[in-house]
Design a protein around this nucleic acid. Structure first.
Lengths: 73, 73
DNA sequence: TTTTCATGTTCCTGATCGGGAATTATTGCT
DNA sequence: AGCAATAATTCCCGATCAGGAACATGAAAA
């Protein structure tokens, strides 16, 4: 899934969370954040802190890949 | 390139920026952020705002992909 | 040497994050 | 379908901090 905004990231996170049958509360615990953060993140809040967002993504077992970084000049 | 922390993201961004021969200042202008933000982002500050980080990534022409979101249960 | 790039500081406004309680969906079961 | 349990969202408070701008320093390149 391609991501180009915090909105899309939030949607992807929610999708993945639901497919795992995990509640926001549990995800918050697993990822080491607050429940409020999960809510904001899934809603696509643009000002979420990046490391926390990455923690959540990892807690969901989702991998992030960047294309076009280690090659052409 | 796989990303799992703000540190790695910062490194990737710097790599990409250098390969394009763009200065932090120019990147800031292009991405619509401040110079200060680019510096912090490349250094891997964990509390950068996510949408701004995404803007920078896009300004560099880098695509972000999430694996494992739209499929298995 | 002179110019460019990167980083550090400082000041200031404004917002994030967290927790608990209360409210509003949503889901599941009989 | 209807009700009950669960989940999602919002509100309030407070401490901490992000982001931007401008200026000064350090270092490296022309």
């Amino acid at each position: 899934m391609k991501i180009s905004s915090s909105q899309e990231l939030g949607q992807a996170i929610r999708l993945r969370r639901k497919s795992l049958h995990v509640t926001q509360k549990d995800l918050a615990l697993t990822a080491g954040t607050g429940l409020r953060f999960i809510i904001d993140l899934e809603r696509g809040k643009p000002t979420c802190h990046i490391q926390k967002a990455l923690s959540v993504v990892q807690a969901l077992g989702v991998k992030i890949n960047l294309s076009g970084v280690g090659d052409e000049s």
